[in-house]
Simulated assay, not measured.
Amino acid sequence: MIGEMDADSVVGYFRGKSILITGSTGFLGKVLVEKILRVQPDVKKLYLLIRAPDAESAKLRIQTEIIGREIFHVLKEKHGVQFNNFIEEKICPLVGDIIYENFGLDNVQLEELSKDIDVIVNGAATTNFFERF
């Protein structure tokens, strides 16, 4: 029973919270995004840091590399025709990259995010194999 109580308190904690997730296009990132949306649909917002040249490209990456994957089948069935509206309401793409200071976000974006984000989950990694350890 203690395990169930712990899981319930974690799920409850995410109600109404905004979460910044890096690495959401990776294997574990997709699993995390799906799990949060499935077990806590009352999460306020998931900000997904996406490496892309512009906002439209970031949205396309989210659609093809995250939301369009089979792991989201249960959520699609649960929400039916409202699935796209649910995703639009919950997921906010952020164009940026972990290799830059402040993810490459400008001061205005950082100021707005700092007011809204409750949790940061860093699941990103660089694919540059010449990085220093």
Rank of each mutant, 00 (worst) to 15 (best):
Q63M: 06
K45D: 02
M5S: 12
Y47M: 06
E56S: 11
N102W: 02
R69C: 07
I98S: 12
M5T: 10
V81D: 14
G23T: 09
K76R: 15
I98Y: 03
F133V: 14
A58M: 03
R38S: 06
V31M: 13
D42N: 11
D106K: 08
I98T: 06
K115G: 07
V74Q: 13
D8N: 12
I50H: 07
F103R: 06
I62K: 07
K76E: 12
H79P: 08
K115T: 10
L49F: 06
E131M: 08
V121L: 12
T22Q: 09
V119A: 04
R69D: 14
F130R: 15
E131N: 14
F103V: 02
D106A: 05
R51E: 08
L37C: 04
Q109V: 14
L37V: 07
L48A: 01
K76G: 00
L113D: 04
S18I: 03
K59I: 01
I67N: 01
H79Y: 12
V119I: 15
L75I: 04
K78I: 07
I71S: 11
V95C: 02
E88W: 03
E89Y: 09
G26R: 12
V43I: 14
G12K: 11
K45W: 00
L110N: 10
A55K: 14
D8T: 09
L32H: 06
N85L: 06
N128I: 02
F14V: 04
H79F: 15
G104L: 01
K44P: 00
D116N: 11
C92L: 02
V39F: 10
D54A: 07
I21F: 09
G26P: 13
G80Q: 07
E101V: 05
K45Y: 03
L60G: 00
K35G: 03
N102P: 09
D8C: 08
E34G: 00
D6R: 14
D97W: 04
Q63K: 15
M1C: 02
A55H: 12
V108D: 10
E88C: 11
V39M: 06
